[in-house]
Amino acid sequence: MSQFESEVGDAELDALFAQAREPNEADAGAAERFLAGHRVRVARTQAQIQTRPLWVRPRIPAKWLAAALASAAVIAGVGVLRPSLAPGDLPASAAYAAYQDALGEGW
């Protein structure tokens, strides 16, 4: 048997635990004070964000912004390059090869 068990009996322990589980007025007061302070801090942060310029507001994480920009670049690139990437068109070397045939041997 341990020294703790010798000093505090089972009945006292049960009473102690019951007292800890039941919120008392002191707990409610502390919680209320904390929540009030928290609300004030959140409100202050929101006010600061609203007054910042659009591009520095941390609403959209930077990684999403980078991903969106990369996607836009890919779409724009495909749009611009599409005519030359048309699968049906032969490269200009095909035309030069035909011309080379007509030039005569040895060129």
Partner: peptide, 10 residues
């Protein structure tokens, strides 16, 4: 039957 990409002299 297929087109060729435009280039100098083409």
């Amino acid at each position: 039957p297929r087109n060729v990409r435009p280039a100098v002299g083409v």
